[in-house]
Amino acid sequence: MASQGRRGGVSLPDRPSNSSSVLAKISRSSIVVRGKEAAGDAAFVAKKLLRSTGKAAWIAGTTFLVLVVPLIVEMDREQQLNDLELQQASLLGTPAPK
């Protein structure tokens, strides 16, 4: 990389080639390579995690929609019916059942 920079930048002063070589050195250093790998892995895991979480949320949501929502609606209706009956009973003066 450094030799290439020197060959290509004949008219250029030494500074950019110098800095690029520093950059290259940095980018070639093991810590950066390791970091890049780690970042790649993290991104992969995060993507997978996100996808599986989404799937789980989807399954949980649809299950909830099928199993629990009708139950809530029907319980509410039953409660309303009971209340209405109680109200009517108290209005008519007859003792409420139960």
Partner: peptide
């Protein structure tokens, strides 16, 4: 219930029914 009957089930095959 008074106005309805509701049955629901889940099983280990990943099947949910109501």
């Amino acid at each position: 219930l008074r106005q309805c009957r509701l049955r629901g089930k889940v099983d280990s095959n990943g099947c949910v029914a109501a």
